[in-house]
């Protein structure tokens, strides 16, 4: 699977030092803008916040997956941050978060292929072993290897 098309090098933040959930989200959005996946920062950020407002995307097990569908998104994309310090995300299990996957989906999702990849990654997050390895990654290369193997 060609994960590089989805997860641009500029969108991998290891480690990311941030003080709050909002700061993490903004930094990841900035990274997606820099990589060319998002053209309207505010619109996409709005979609992310709307999604958070309906219920935290902290899925538990120290992982969060903020995601948003917005016309501000140019193409489906991923961003990943490994946080230097765990941050509270109002997670389902109450634990603070160290791994954050941000998912960007355009309003008119063209081509299912990329969506399928995002879906495969989402599914994989349920696997304990995969999660442990994900939270242990130290650089972009190991992350790419790990995701590429899905």
């Amino acid at each position: 699977m060609n994960i590089k098309e989805l997860l641009h090098e500029q969108s991998i933040l290891i480690p990311l030092a941030a003080a709050s959930k909002n700061e993490v989200m903004e930094k990841l959005v900035d990274a997606l803008v820099a990589s060319g996946a998002v053209h309207d920062r505010e619109a996409y950020l709005g979609a992310l916040h709307n999604r958070e407002a309906t219920g935290s995307t902290g899925i538990g097990f120290r992982v969060a997956i903020p995601h948003g569908k917005s016309s501000g998104v140019t193409k489906p994309a991923l961003a990943f941050a490994k946080l230097a310090e765990p941050i509270d995300w109002d997670s389902l299990d109450g634990q603070p978060v160290t791994g954050v996957f941000m998912i960007a989906v355009p309003e008119a999702a063209a081509g299912n292929e990329h969506l399928q990849i995002l879906i495969a990654i989402s599914r994989k997050l349920i696997d304990d072993e995969f999660r442990e390895r994900l939270l242990a990654v130290e650089d972009a290369a190991t992350l790419n290897d790990l995701l590429g193997a899905i």
Partner: peptide, 17 residues
């Protein structure tokens, strides 16, 4: 779920597992 890329599939996977 509303966006349909993450929770839908994680929930499915979690139940299946």
């Amino acid at each position: 779920c509303p966006t349909g890329v993450a929770h839908t599939y994680m929930a499915a996977e979690s139940l299946m597992k």
